[in-house]
Design a binder for these strands. Structure first.
Lengths: 157, 157
DNA sequence: GCTCCCATACTCGGATAATAACTGTCCGAGTATGGAAGG
DNA sequence: CCTTCCATACTCGGACAGTTATTATCCGAGTATGGGAGC
């Protein structure tokens, strides 16, 4: 899985602390000493998915487009990685004896169904966790993080 | 995820029908019109994992090394893909403000934990399904498959 | 006829290229800013 | 002094290379087979 997911997750969390002010890709990347342009690429993906909104020009940047209650980990993963399942079924049964080009074996193959079941368990777990939940947990476990992050974005950089 | 997983899953199922006789990589690949040498590579991985046992020379090939009750989908996935999590945590917090090289953020980072939770749900689902279960389901849904497969391996090729 | 031996053909196994995906980078299109000119 | 305009600098956005992982292939090491020679 692409490492961009990790960047996106942390950036969304950071943006939730910053609040309404737009933050540039440069600042979000510098926070973790990551390449700016590539970080920008991930933020673009989040924007296309409707998780962030972007503003051009001076005082521009990215900000959250929705309430953090309404941003699940699955949303972010899908925005970066795409909608495809972890296990991709190439339908080898199609080329086996008695295989047909007109059957969608992703629906009939038992193994495909079994793997899909696991995929759904994964997605379900991700869909049940929102950025709001994560933020709450972080603030409970590491109370200083919020202010430290806020200061770093507003003062430095 | 590597397509080799799909090949491995179907091959294990097919081997469970064949029984005790060794089947060559050539035959297992030809069954789905797949490249022989690359199929061989996947079967090697399964052998290293202790799922299959291999025999060289004439009348050689691969056969199941364990009871199908004792082969889970997770075993096969791990044999092909390795033990790494779906989401790999590169510990970006390490390079953030206040980050330390001596902390393992895979254990402290809340986001990492959340992603790991989903990974575990996925693995748990895979671990609960054995090849025996799959075989039972296939034989119920498609009663002719077992004999058709057996005939194809014993007579043809 | 039976046993032993050997050449043979067949199989797996790991080392080696071709391809695709991910990672990283660059420059152009568009925009809010901030100052200068004019009223 | 206030308003309007414009040049400017800054931002995102998509198009372009470099690098790693996946896909595919090849040839050598080892082994059970099957026939032939010898007893």
């Amino acid at each position: 899985m692409s490492e961009g997911v990790e960047w996106a997750l942390h950036s969304c969390l950071n943006l939730s602390w910053v609040g309404d002010e737009a933050v540039t890709a440069r600042k979000l990347a510098a926070f973790y000493q990551l390449p700016t342009a590539y970080m920008n690429k991930q933020l673009q993906a989040l924007t296309r998915a409707g998780i962030l909104s972007s503003t051009s020009g001076p005082r521009g940047g990215f900000r959250l487009a929705r309430t953090i209650d309404d941003i699940t980990l699955l949303d972010i993963v899908v925005a970066i990685e795409g909608r495809e399942d972890i296990f991709r079924c190439d339908q080898v049964l199609r080329h086996g004896p008695g295989g047909s080009d007109e059957v969608d074996y992703r629906h009939t193959c038992v193994l495909s169904g079994a793997m899909r079941k696991a995929d759904l368990a994964w997605r379900s777990s991700l869909a049940q966790q929102t950025i709001a939940d994560i933020r709450t947990d972080v603030e409970k476990a590491y109370p200083h993080t919020r202010d430290a992050t806020l200061n770093h974005f507003l003062n430095a950089g």
